[in-house]
Amino acid sequence: MKKQAAYAAFVVLLLAAAAYAAFFIAPTDARQGVVYRIIFLHVPCAETGLLSFFVCFVGNVAYVLKRDAKWDWLGVSAAEVGLAFTTACLVTGPIWAKPVWGIWWTWDARLTSTAVLWLLYVAYLLLRSLIEEPERRALLSALFGIFAFIDVPLVFGSIRWWRTQHPQPVIMGGPGSGLDPTMKAVLFFCWAPMLALMVLLMQSRYRLEAMRGDLDVVRREMETA
């Protein structure tokens, strides 16, 4: 427990450092002004969300093959954490888009794919809430999670090829998309606290799920006694 608190403090420190870097170290963008600084939150959130969904996929496959409840706990923890980061990404997107592009939402490839991704994992959690029996819930949601994750590259591919009005995403569009080296360094640094936060959240959520499992066992024992 103490270790956990220490780690949490470390994550807070990292987040503070990242915020400092984002506001004071990175230079102000010549065209977009201060508002562009939201990328230091927006971009790491997107990447971390995707990584969480990958962890969820690993948990899903492992559950189907091993049938150990621990993998199910990992799956649901990762899905919820991933959804939190993806939501943050979807909220910060329009906040950034409005002053820069003049519109809240644009059907840009990345935004749209992320929205579909978000819907897929909302469906995953919804499915879980509609199956009561733990073993069946674990198995069926794991199978859906597998189908959902292999769908991700197909979603990204189809949308990127056919649904983009913008020729290139504004930043990080590929080599030579012209991000200031300091900005780039800060952006990379901002990933660290997000990853640390992801681990922290997943750990806590996993522990909660494990406690629920224990509670089930205790309840059963009380019933039999």
Binding site: E132, E133, P134, E135, D216, R219, R220, E223, T224
Partner: peptide, 8 residues
């Protein structure tokens, strides 16, 4: 065989 908290 368990169905949730229930032992079958």
């Amino acid at each position: 065989k368990r169905y949730g908290g229930l032992f079958a």
